[in-house]
Design a binder for these strands. Sequence first.
DNA 1: AAGCCGGGGAC
DNA 2: GTCCCAGGCTT
Length: 348
Amino acid sequence: MNFTDELVQWYLANKRDLPWRNTTDAYTIWLSEIILQQTRVEQGLPYFNRFVEKYPTVSDFAAAHEDEVLKLWQGLGYYSRGRNMLKTAQLVQQMYNGVFPESYDDLIKLKGIGEYTAAAISSFSSNEARAVVDGNVYRVLARYFGIYEAINSSTGKKTFQSLATNLLNKQNAALHNQAMMEFGAMLCKPKNPGCGICPVNVGCAAFLNNATTALPVKLKTVKVRERFFNYFLVTDGNTVLMNKRGDKDIWANMYDLPMVETPEMLPAHELAKLPEVTAMFGNELNITEDTSVIKHILTHQRLFVRMVKTTNTPLILKENWAFIPVDSLHELALPKVIFILIKNIFNL
DNA sequence: AAGCCGGGGAC
DNA sequence: GTCCCAGGCTT
């Protein structure tokens, strides 16, 4: 048996039972694929189930409001996925009359669908002969064929996509793709791969050369920026002043609190006198509580976040500010760290 | 081509 | 701490 046939045999004997594998409905598969971008199966699974229940068809999804989608997406990260899904659902409703496209060429044009996702949806829904290349496939191919080209260079991407396409079983694209990814996720793992029980170890360049830890090769480490967020809790117990974020920075269109960003974390008494703060509240801030600083890690940023409670109220409400009834707080999509800051105060 | 976009789990 | 996850969009 050749390499890919071995992996298919391994897959049939070892595959997990995952809900999106029991359908060929392009809409349902699309839901799963977007949710699973840069996301582990175990983390995405409960979100998939909630989305399928709330939006059984793409028409149901298209009728949703963005706040509602982001709320359902809360905690999953990379929120542009949720925002793009709504746009795509609305476009499919209008342009395709609610019938989700199945062809790669149609799918690749949609917001939030790139090469990987178009290949995944087209092959899983209609068995179109398109090879998926995700993180798992990069790793499996780099190791088995001993490819030291960086998987995140533009030439490397072409090399791996070309190799994956050549290897594709064009009669059984769906099964082939599932097998490649599941093998990478379950056995040919980033750390401690199961080489001892691997069905293709005798042909694996990395195994034979003791190079599994060196492959795949990936370029550069991301630069991490440090930021200091000072949030203000303005509440009378019945309502709380919330801010809807813009669409440029992190957590686009989600909700947090009024805040100032500082170049470093200041003691409360210095924060209270900051010109930016006194301008906002009319005079020196009266701080009644100050949380300990929470360190919150994102891919490109290390956030240091604190929240101060104040008896002051702002002079004027900025455009994106509103006093929200505490009873309605649970409807707002909150970034993880905001949820942590206020969950105990308002019983969220 | 490089930078940006979350949160969590394994080690 | 570091790495990476069924990646894609913007500049």
